[in-house]
Design a protein around this nucleic acid. Structure first.
Lengths: 341, 341
DNA sequence: CTGTTAGCGCATTCAT
DNA sequence: ATGAATGCGCTAACAG
């Protein structure tokens, strides 16, 4: 398991034991075809006997590359990003790259230490998954190494590719679905002037207008959590002319809407239809069974990885923006509106 | 941003620009006090002007250490482990260590590639979070570098520390809480003959016997997901003498229990009390509001990190087993049993 | 305090 | 097909 004196065995130990030179061991370890079968076997046997594995630190140093890309995830606690990550790393693994994960957000600010850790480690590229507060350190880093953002707003730099789901299209799918069921008073919880919140609010408003429902546009502010979604929904349901349907900015807010409806004795979907966004594992549970816009995260992760590989090969090409068309996952939280009073 | 010819600047470039030797630059970068303020400033200025950052790859090679520990997480999709990870990395960061995360499970088998990636990277220690299928490659790795397991069963090797919550105590808290509310027919969903499932089933049985309820012991098999928890609960509620309370092996199964009860028109907690385990974010949502055993993950992560640091300093001491006493987070899914028929 | 020298483990020329 | 020499960027042990 260890070298003779407790150290891990090096290429030299293997060479000595196999009775060949270090270079030959190196060739064998990297799968060169230019080695006679007999010597190859001798090297492989010696390596196994010693428990040798090439030191990737030394290799990185001499090759001048680490074959590593750093991924900065906005929030580990809400596992909406897992599908992005999995397809992203699958593609990069296929290209011999390693993927490191770091958590980017720390008390509503960017955790600069993860950016610096990645830079210190000499990652060859960066990927930001999910919206992160803007920070010059990160922006600078993304200017100096190849970078891509996935499902993220706020870092669309000139030389950074971005792959995001089409929020406008997604909100349109949600509103059209509800209109198709007969709803007209369709409200939105979310809002705000930045990032996904802005994009989805605008998508909602655009869709409502396009369907002739401009007069019913109604937005109540909330964040990406159950509490504020709950409060926003209570405000909506407490007014004179409450909506028959709510489109939420994401699944967590939508969960708040469901809780609020339950507390008020409003049946979902009989008296209130709700639609979430992100199609998280939460939405798929049979207990909630939320109709939710599915951003197609596996596709986003895969395309982000491809963009990154292309950029790694090409160099500083201008950033390309990919818009993935979402789909609607229809479940049991939506239905026909109640008959008019 | 880059060196003169596109390369990243090295310690040599900085030394040249500052008019000092490389060693001096090295001293300054590592914060030595043995440098005159004037020269220190010259070095720092040159480094900033060049955008220099020490190459940690080269540093690792010469120091013979990477200051990196690899964490293998069982399942990224279920974010129960996040609190463990956060406190774990907080402690390690405080000691100048980096933490890398890898996903360990791949289609019910261990993903050996993450173990090998960590070994290739020369991580100085390993940490396994959550139960993973046994695999000789991982066992071997944990024998060859300092290792600790947190909230995990199955890798309690002779030289591996383990920090786990006390499942027996946790199940006892759950059962006692229910008995205190007046329940007697208390069933368990979970079961199985390995890992947490075994430990919690045994804990349940022990607690029931200790409270004189041996005759009411009833276990229905399920896994760590909503579907099987749902099915198990339907079996329980469909029999002649259904339980008035269910203790689930974890929160996901408990969610299944809630769904099943809802589908059968059984009100929670009026006609059925349910208790989960893990106190995941899910349990805390006001919509579900599950009473759940809280394993105190922040403490687990912190202690695991301390054990690892001690082991890193000490060497191959025998593995110590820490049992963390869980607490019960009481919420709205438990209440008094219905009055007898 | 500062500069010089020698590797860390490996891949990569160049010679055979 | 194989082996010897060179250097990746840095730190550590010295010698000034």
């Amino acid at each position: 398991m260890s070298g003779k004196d407790g150290r891990r065995p090096t290429i030299r130990d293997v060479a000595e034991r196999a009775g060949v030179s270090k270079s030959l061991v190196s060739l064998v370890m990297r799968g060169s075809a230019q080695v006679s079968p007999a010597r190859r076997k001798a090297v492989l046997d010696a390596a196994r006997a010693l428990g040798y594995r090439p030191n990737s630190v030394a290799r990185s140093l001499v090759e001048g590359r680490t074959r590593t890309v750093g991924v900065i995830v906005s929030d580990l606690r809400n596992p909406w990003y897992v599908d992005i990550l999995e397809s992203f790393r699958r593609v990069l693994h296929g290209d011999g790259m390693r993927v490191l994960i770091g958590a980017g957000e720390l008390e509503h600010r960017l955790d600069q230490t993860v950016v610096e850790a990645f830079l210190d480690l000499r990652v060859e590229a960066l990927c930001v998954v999910g919206s992160l507060p803007f920070d010059p350190v990160l922006a600078d880093a993304m200017g100096s190494v190849p970078a891509v953002v996935a499902s993220s707003h706020g870092y669309e730099l000139p030389t950074v590719d971005s792959v995001v789901n089409d929020d406008v299209h997604g909100m349109r799918l949600a509103v059209e679905h509800l209109v198709g069921l007969g709803h007209r008073r369709i409200a939105h919880i979310g809002g705000g002037a930045a990032g996904v919140f802005q994009a989805r609010r605008e998508g909602y408003e655009t869709a409502m207008r396009a369907l002739g429902l401009a007069e019913h546009v109604r937005v109540e502010r909330c964040e990406n959590d159950e509490q504020t979604g709950y409060a926003a929904t209570r405000r909506l349901l407490g007014c004179d002319d409450p909506p028959t349907a709510i489109v939420a900015v994401n699944d967590m807010a939508c969960l708040g809407a469901v809780s609020a409806a339950a507390d008020l004795g409003v049946d979902v979907p009989a008296r209130l239809s709700v639609v979430g966004y992100d199609n998280t594992p939460l939405a798929g549970t049979s207990h909630l069974s939320l109709t939710s816009v599915d951003p197609r995260n596996p596709e986003i992760g895969e395309l982000a990885a491809r963009r990154l590989l292309a950029r790694l090969a090409e160099g500083g090409a201008p950033g390309v923006r990919d818009l993935i068309s979402p789909r609607l996952a229809v479940r049991r939280s939506t239905g026909h509106p109640p008959a008019d009073r």
